[in-house]
Amino acid sequence: MPAYEFALMLRAMPKPELKTALKRISHAIFDRGGIIRNIENLGFRSMPYKTSAHGLVHREANYVVFKVDTAALSVTDLKEEYSRDVDIIRQRVFRVQDDFEHSCTLEEELLPPAYREEVQKMIEIGKTQVNRFTYKFKYNSGLDYYPFQK
């Protein structure tokens, strides 16, 4: 299971150049003692929005995802290096999370409000609060009149 996913957008360029760019990117990982588990090529396509990077406006990009195992400290280092790379338009790094087992709670969520645990908790909290509708302020002055100007 890889620890990080580097989602990169590379600028439109001919294949040999793309090859050298990918090599450069992967060597940067290897130099910092990282391991590449997998490289996913999501293809060359037009972007949903134009992006300007390194003084150029890009409308198309090569989408690549690197699945990498590295030390946490080297990730910031890599990000800094890739930010200087002219071929990389945009880079995002995500931690890969394990799939946790969970059962669907839709049935409980579709119950009428009074039967939902969430609502019952809210009612319990509401009981501890002051009721705004029935609360009346007490002066506690011992006088049967209010001594100050109202």
């Binding site: 989602a7 995002r92 669907c104 709670t105 969520e109």
Partner: peptide
């Protein structure tokens, strides 16, 4: 369900941010 909806929302935001 609640957990899946939350997951879908975060993943959509990630996908939009990645272009």
């Amino acid at each position: 369900c609640k957990s899946k909806q939350e997951k879908v929302e975060t993943e959509i935001k990630k996908a939009q941010n990645c272009g």
